[in-house]
């Protein structure tokens, strides 16, 4: 076997209501990006990114999930093995913020007990349409002892930072442990899922 090219592997998940911008966070349609119709039509399942933190080479495997109610059974099957979860709401959508509590309960039920969580208030570029103040986001995060950040997938604000902070938090927690066996990866068939990426951030 070839030598391992990394020290640790962290599986991260994006969850939250439909339309909050999870897919855009993973699959940014920035104007300067070379975006092809073919890839945007089929959509991205997950990404592998390598970051260096605390002198360690860390592989992040980042998964997108569907926010729609009818996909929840599939979504919860992704919780298994996730070491970090980004819980996303939309600062212009009150309902998506209220549902944070519901998503947190969902995580408690289905994810690993020691999963590291982070709340993201996305679409912070849309200040004119804001209905959820930053303070409310900070408050709910504090109440649950979770990290918080406002992001914009469209303007590329805090996206990289959010991932490296979440990874850093997992690193602190896992310090000393062995990397997980990458062979345990299971494919979940999501062919039924409609492609939602087309209108993304344009």
């Amino acid at each position: 076997m070839a030598k391992k090219t990394y020290d640790l592997l962290f599986k991260l998940l994006l969850i939250g209501d439909s339309g909050v911008g999870k897919t855009c966070i993973l699959f940014r349609f920035s104007d300067d990006a070379f975006t092809t119709t073919f890839i945007s039509t089929i959509g991205i399942d997950f990404k592998i990114k390598t970051v260096e933190l605390g002198g360690k080479k860390i592989k992040l495997q980042i998964w997108d999930t569907a926010g729609q109610e009818r996909f929840h059974t599939i979504t919860t099957s992704y919780y298994r093995g996730a070491m970090g979860i980004m819980l996303v709401y939309d600062i212009t959508n009150e309902k998506s913020f209220e549902n944070i509590v519901k998503w947190l309960r969902n995580i408690d039920e289905h994810a690993n007990e020691d999963v590291e969580k982070m709340i993201l208030g996305n679409k912070c570029d849309m200040s004119d349409k804001r209905t959820v103040s930053k303070e409310r986001g900070e408050t709910i995060a504090r109440e649950h002892g979770i990290r918080f950040m406002e992001t914009s997938a469209k303007a590329n604000i805090n996206i990289e930072r959010a991932f490296s902070e979440l990874a850093g938090a997992i690193l602190e927690k896992t310090a000393g442990r062995e990397p997980g066996d990458p062979a345990d990866r299971v494919y979940v068939d999501r062919r039924q899922q409609p492609s939602t990426t087309k209108s993304c951030c344009n």
């Binding site: 090219t5 990394y6 089929i42 959509g43 399942d45 990404k47 592998i48 390598t50 592989k59 999501r190």
Partner: peptide
């Protein structure tokens, strides 16, 4: 996981 950075599309 040998890849440094890469995206995998849906199936």
């Amino acid at each position: 996981y040998t890849f440094q950075n890469v995206g995998f599309s849906n199936t």
